[in-house]
Design a protein around this nucleic acid. Structure first.
Ligand SMILES: [Mn+2]
Ligand SMILES: [Mn+2]
Ligand SMILES: [Zn+2]
Ligand SMILES: [Zn+2]
Lengths: 139, 139
DNA sequence: ATAGATAGTGCAACAGAAGTGCATTATTCA
DNA sequence: TGAATAATGCACTTCTGTTGCACTATCTAT
């Protein structure tokens, strides 16, 4: 994607398009799998960890990316779909973690099914992670 | 529960019932909510963190407790039900995290529904956490 | 164009959770 | 009883996430 296009996308989300932010956005765009802060740190070894941290936090606040807790212990991030409403309410799609290649992907078209809770419990949010073998890791 | 009863339960799971292990087992038994290593550390302030850590790890290996990743960033543990087969395959019940009281409970009778994955994906394990308001935290 | 305000960046330091090496102590069993 | 084995306690380390503060870049109004 052209830099100019990313710039305007960021501006639409009220994120000032700095050089670093454009690079991070592009990195997330080119990778199908969700990325952690450490992934960013390793890829952008010229940049500081804090900058990347704050970049991703800004993206998150402004609804550019959403957090993924895949159970590995490290939080990952992926770009939000166009029209995703993570900011207001969580977009309850599920995530898939591959035990073989150690990558996590959004399955945006698979929504978390509704669960009947015991009396007195009210659901506000949900997180569903399926672990197994991904399509790129044949047996 | 009587100490002798706990002793025999531990022995059945091939865990040598030391004083500390019996205390930890009892603590988990008396608490409905799942507990973290830090919770144990705070409660048993006489004991060393490493001992508690290895106690809970032993319990986990021997199928006495199961891990819960509730998305808070700290792993919690709860006793396995009688007849639970966590060791062989994960008992796919879901967990509930209360945003108000910050406690996590097993909903052992609510199983994670089967999800149809895209072609090429195979599921081996799953984790579902519902977040909201628990029965003890009325509005 | 300039100055002041605002926003972003980089370094250092810190906190919390998890895990390991090793010496010491307790328990088991031959 | 003594050797082997298991459990415990202390110190130290790693990893992830987070914050304070100074410095720099960018923006905006004059
Ligand atoms: Mn996602
Ligand atoms: Mn459980
Ligand atoms: Zn894979
Ligand atoms: Zn509650």
């Amino acid at each position: 994607m052209k830099t100019a296009k990313i710039e305007s996308l960021l501006q639409k989300s009220n994120v000032r398009p700095t050089a670093m932010r454009i690079l991070v956005y592009n990195f997330l765009l080119e990778n199908e799998a969700a990325k952690s802060l450490t992934d960013l740190e390793n890829y952008f070894d010229k940049s500081d960890r804090t900058t990347l941290y704050r970049t991703i936090k800004t993206f998150e606040e402004k609804g550019v990316v959403h957090q993924i807790d895949d159970g590995t212990g490290t939080t990952k991030y992926a770009l939000c779909e166009q029209g995703c409403n993570c900011q207001i309410e969580t977009d309850l799609h599920l995530h898939f973690y591959c035990n073989i290649c150690d990558e996590t992907v959004c399955l945006t078209d698979r929504k978390i099914p509704h669960i009947n809770l015991p009396d007195g419990y009210t659901a506000e949010d949900a997180n569903l992670v399926i672990k197994g073998r991904c399509e790129k890791c044949p047996e």
